[in-house]
Every structure is written in C-alpha cells, then in structure tokens.
Nucleic acid binder design. Structure first.
Lengths: 217, 217, 217, 217
DNA sequence: AATGAATGAGGATTCATTCAT
DNA sequence: TATGAATGAATCCTCATTCAT
C-alpha cells in the first residue's frame, strides 16, 4: 500500500529535508511529541515547545507556518511509519481473509501506537485539534480506499462493496482505538480484542466465500 | 430505564428551578447552546455566553460555579430527555430482541439529536471538554448497565455476558454517532444505518436464541 | 482608665444594641473573627462572612455600612475588653513604677491577645486594612494620653515629659507585639520579654526617682 | 557589610542587565514606584503599571514572572543601595561604639529613604504584600547577622550576645521607621531620634565597656 | 426588617504571532 | 537564517455593593 502523503504542511511553509535545518525541525517535532506525551495536547504551546527544543519561539516559525503545522508534521512523520508497518505486516501474511486482513491491520496500528506513544497521544487523544482531525479524516479515507482495493483484487469482498463500508470499517476501528487508549497508555486489551471482532463481524457481511474462508496469499 | 441524574452542577451552585431566575438560567443555557452550535465548543467563553445572553459575565456566576458547569447543565437537561425518549420507545416495542432493542435505542438517540441540535453539538462534537467527557463516560456506563439488566431480565443475552461487552456496545454506538454527525448536522444516514448493523452484529454474539429470534414484550 | 470609644461605626450605620438584631450583629462579628483567624484577613469577603454567619450577604449591609465597618466593630468590641483588662490589672498593683506600669500594661495586652485570638489576628496581622489601621492609631494615642496622665498624677515621670514620648512608647509596644505574634499565635516569649525591657528602658529615661524605685499604689 | 542579594526575581524570569530591554525594565520599575508612592501599594495593578509605563500589560510579563516580582525587583535594586550606604557610612566612622554603630546605621537608612521615596513607600508602607514582607524578613535577618558579627569582631558586645537580640534590634529599628514614615514622607524627626535612642538603650544592655565608651575604628 | 438577585469594575495571566535587526 | 523583543486579544473569575420586593 502506498503511504498516504499530505503536502499541506510543507506547502504552508517550506520544510527543509536535509542539512542542519532538518535537524532543527526534528528537534521541534521531538519536543512537541514529548510535551504532548507528558502533559497532554493542551500543554503544547509555542513556548513549551521552544523551551524543550531549546530554541527561540520565533525559530519555530522559521519552519512551520503555525502551531497546527507542527502537530501535522508529527502526524505525517509517524503516519508514514504506520502505513509501512501495515504494508509490511500484510505482506507477511500467508493466508488472506477479511478476518486476517482486518486483524493484521489493526494489530499493526497497535504496534505503532506502542512504539510511538506521543503519536498515539496526538492521534487518539488530540483529535480536538482541527488540523489533526482533518488530516485524520483524510488519512482514514485513503486507508479505506487502499484496503478496499487490496481486498477486491484478491476477491475477499464482493465487487459491489461500497467504499463507504470500508470507510466505516476504518473509522470504527479508529474509534475503537480512541476508546481503548483513552485511559490506558498501552490500550485496554479487552477493548482492542473486542473491537477487532466487531469490525471483522461487520465487514464479513460483505465478504466472498473466499474472504470468509481465506485464500493463500 | 431510570434517567441518569448528576447533581454535581446543582451542587456547585444552587440552580433555581422556578421563577424569574429559572428564565435567566435558561437564557444562559440557550445562549451557550447557540454558540456551541454555531461556532463549536471552543467559541464558548464566558464573554460570548454573556453577550449572547445579553447579561453581564458576572451574572453567569450567579447560577453556575464555572464555565464547565454551564456545559454540564445542558448535558443534564438534554440527557434527561434522551433517557426518557429511550425508555418510552423501548416501552412501545411489541417484540423484543437484541436487534430491536439496539435499533430502538440508537434511533431514539437520533431522534433527540435531531430535536436538540445544540446538545448534539456539545455531546458529539464537544467531547474535548473534560467536564463533558467525564459526564459522558459516566452516562455511558450507566446506560450500558441499565440496558444489560434490561436484556438479561428478558433472557435476550446469556447470563454470563460481561458488563464490558455492554459498555463497549454503548461506547461504540456513541462513536458511531460522533462519526455520523461529524460533518452532517442531521447525521449521515448511511453511517447511522451501518453503525446500527455493526453494533447489532457485535452484540448478537452474546445473544440467546430468544435474543436472536425475538420474544413478545 | 476610661475605655477608648469610637463611634464611627455606629454612626455610619445604626447598630442595634438589643433585641434580635443584636444577636445577628454578633453572629456577623463572630463569623468575621472566625474567618480572619482561620484564613487571614484577605479571606474576609462579604460572601465568606455571610456564609459562615449563615445569612444573606445583603443582611450584612443592614447592620454595617461596608466591609470595613465589620472589622472596626470587632476592634471596638475587643478593644473595650482590652482597656478593661489594663485598668483592672493596673488597679491591682500594690507598687507603682514606670517598670511595673509598663510591664503590667503590656502583659495585660498579651492576656487579651491570648483570650481573643481573632482580635489578635485582626489587630496585629491585619493592619493592612486602612480602617483598622486608623482606628489603631487613634486608640494608641488615646491610650498613651491616658497612661501618661496616670503616670504624671503619681509622679512616676517628670512633669515635662512630652506626650510624644508616651505615644512612642505605646506605638513601639504595639510594634513589638506585631513582631512577636507574627509567626507565633501565642506570641514569641523572647520577643515579648525583650520588647518589654526595651520599652521600659526607653521610658525610664523620663522617670522620676519615684518612677524608678516605685511607690505604694 | 556584604549586601544582601536575592536572585529570586532574576531567576523567575531573566532580567536583562543592559541594552534597550534594561531601559524598559527600568520604566516598569519606575512606573511601579511612582504608583505605589502616589496611591499606595493596593493601587499597584498590572494595568496601572502598564498604563504609567506606557506599554502593554503583556510586556510586563516579558521581564517579570508576576506582579510580585516587580515589587521584589524594586526592593532588591534599592536595598542594594541601602546596604552600600550603611557599609560606606560605617566605614567612615572614626570611633566605634554600640551607639555610634546603631546611630550611623539607622541614619544611613533615613538617608536612603529620603533619596528613594518610592522604595520607602514599598518598604515601609507596603509590607502588606507577602513577597515584600518575606524579602524584608530575610533581609532584616541578614542585616542583623552582619551587624552582630561586625560588633563582635570589634568587641563592642559581649561574645554571648544571642543572635535574637540583634534581630530584635533590627526589627524594632524597622518598625520605628515604619512608624516615623507612616504619615510623614520625610519621616517624623522626633520619632526617628527617639527610636534611635530606644534601640541604643536596648542594645547597650549587651555592650562591653568598650562598646559603651567606644574604641578607635 | 430582610433578602434574592443583579452587576460594574476590575484583576492576574497566557498565548500565538509578528517584526526589526 | 535566526531571534530577542513586543504585543493585541483573550480568558476565567471575584468582589463589594445596590435594589426591588
């Protein structure tokens, strides 16, 4: 699956992709992640970021058009990793079915949420922020489209399965994670497991016999 | 089902239930609803409320201990209505099954969201706010417990169905609504319908044969 | 010694001296004392007083012209007691000298500060308040005049001792108490003892031989 | 005597010591001084300071962590001058005795109070403020310790003179000034003179013969 | 006499963002 | 490119006091 790219941030203000600047951008991103992780998204102010990144507030505006752009950049950075994880884990499957695809995808998400707790915080708990929210919505749509294409190509779902069904599946998966990670940093296992079951049960309504029984990858 | 009551707001500062004061409280509540509805929950400040309600900021504090209390009061007011709607609609059912109970309950919610758009806004889009969020969490738990008891008494679900399953059902229903009402003030019909299917499909995993086929009310 | 009376409060607004009203005034005074004692003079607001006194805020204005008047009333009430204590203790002396008069007077103050901790709080720690401060200044002047007359009549001090000397003695005694009671509710004993010595040493500069050696009362 | 330094303010927020910023800090300090001098310490609000300093309220927070820090900064600035004045005047003495040391020190204070009326206002009349009060207490202790060491080294007081005696001396001197400057901006001369006598009389109780008669500096 | 209700006038502090250098 | 400095615009909340009843 192709990673979902979003150029908006880069457009708003040119973000350098190499050299010393690159390092400073990373420092800002890391600082922001750290703050959100430690004290929640409301604690993220230009000052706190600048303090943690040990650079002047004004420097943030050298690389980012505004505060939201920082959040978005983190999302993009870590979301690329997320997409890669999903692609890799799906690629490793030997037997494909609606269940195995859903399960693998959702567990890949959990893997990354565990590896990137700050991203989890921003992504699952910081959806307050409009920029984050919009990005999320778009990413979910793209992910749904990709997954649907993937499943259709392999005859796991009926050809007439509407895009909206895939989208709902992804969105609900998303909400399940929001719920599971709400109180528990590692996500409540029961909620995660049951959430997977729920999405599987829902999507299997559109599965082909092959999608139900599974086929060699 | 017993309505979920939460006296916290009233406790924080006495809210009069009659007389002219009552009217001013309503004016504040309505102003707040209007603001949230029009510009989102972040637009709700003591000043905007006071302006819209055409009264001094200080007057708000005559009736509410703080800003959160205003939000909470709206939730309580409209949530009581919600509970009544659910109870009434369930009471009108002639045939009970997991599906009919879930469907009726969720549609009752939609009914109230349509009737109370500001509440919808606060409830579904304003979960940012901690006070609202906490109240929501508690209300969801209570609702889940009530519904589970209701289903158990009528043998619709297996006796060992864990409380967490009901909670997940309610929470996911909640999230489905958040999703459906995110862009569309009336809620996206497709998402609502499919969301109902999803919750039904999930909960039927714990249904008794009676719960699947249905029994006379 | 005649008690120092200050009618200002009563003038500002008529304070009833009998009947049910009297009881309500006392309740306000006691509430205020309690608050100041417990949380300092900044905690004294019309609302806190009303709450503790279990009556509406507006009722306070029935008896007192403003917040300051409440403080003043406490001062007057307890200061009368102070004056009585001083007069009584001086009256019990069998041998009069500058030292014995100063010592007796200052110890009488300590006695009352111990008996009326709220008064101590207002008087010694709450001199912030202009009303209290002004009242204090006036009372100190009157006390100084009374004591000087007392000492002169008995030939304890030289006839030409200026009033200002007595005033300074009283004022410094006052400051010694402020200092001694600053941290310690009962007053730091060392500071009290030394303070007495200081005032005695100062005033003995104006003593007659009789005032130094002492004369039968 | 070493000046009493207190870095708290500078720590709370970096105060620039040179350049244009320095000038703005001075403007704030001067504005605050002016306000306190004109209308008392209660008139000192962020807004009044900003108005008088002709800069936005927010700018105050560029240099000071909070309102108290402004007061403290004035105290520190002028108290340093005070310490220098005392040290200089003591250094100029040709004959040392308890009396000459006390007298010189107290007159040095008066000199600075005359030169810095705003400081006098804050220091002597603004002890209301907790920050000022705490700073004052600490400074008094330090001053007492320094003076005691000074006097001991020169055998002016008995070696066993307790620290508390010096502290009481300083504190009472402080209170004498509070009293003398209460109504009179230049301090009531009589009160100042008599106050000096009082402190001298008290401290001479702990003087050595040398401390009474005086020794060459 | 008593009081519920109403409010004008502040008060401290925060924050994202923009410039001049 | 980098940044120290500056600030407009808000934000929530408190309090003493006054009326109409």
């Amino acid at each position: 699956m192709a990673p979902v790219t979003n150029d908006e941030t880069a457009v708003r203000r040119r973000i350098p992709t190499q050299g010393r600047s690159r390092a400073r951008v990373e420092r800002i991103l890391d600082a922001a992640s750290q703050i959100v992780l430690a004290d929640g998204i409301e604690a993220l102010t230009t000052r706190t970021v600048a303090d943690v990144a040990a650079m002047p507030v004004a420097s943030i505006y050298q690389y980012f058009s505004d505060k939201d752009a920082v959040l978005l950049a983190i999302c993009e950075r870590d979301m690329a990793e997320m997409d890669e994880q999903v692609a890799a884990d799906l690629g490793r499957l030997t037997r494909l079915s609606v269940r195995s695809v859903v399960e693998t995808t959702m567990r890949a998400y959990v893997t990354v949420y565990h590896r990137r707790p700050a991203f989890m915080q921003i992504w699952l708990r910081g959806r307050t922020n409009n920029a984050v929210n919009d990005y999320g919505r778009r990413h979910n749509q793209r992910t749904a489209a990709d997954l649907l294409a993937f499943a259709r190509e392999r005859d796991l779902v009926t050809p007439d399965t509407p895009a909206a069904v895939a989208e709902l599946g992804v969105e609900i998966g998303d909400r399940v994670f929001q719920l599971a990670f709400e109180k528990e940093v590692r996500g409540e296992p029961f909620l995660i497991e049951e959430g997977i079951e729920m999405v599987v049960a829902y999507l299997e309504r559109h599965a082909t016999p092959a999608g139900l029984e599974g086929v060699p990858a």
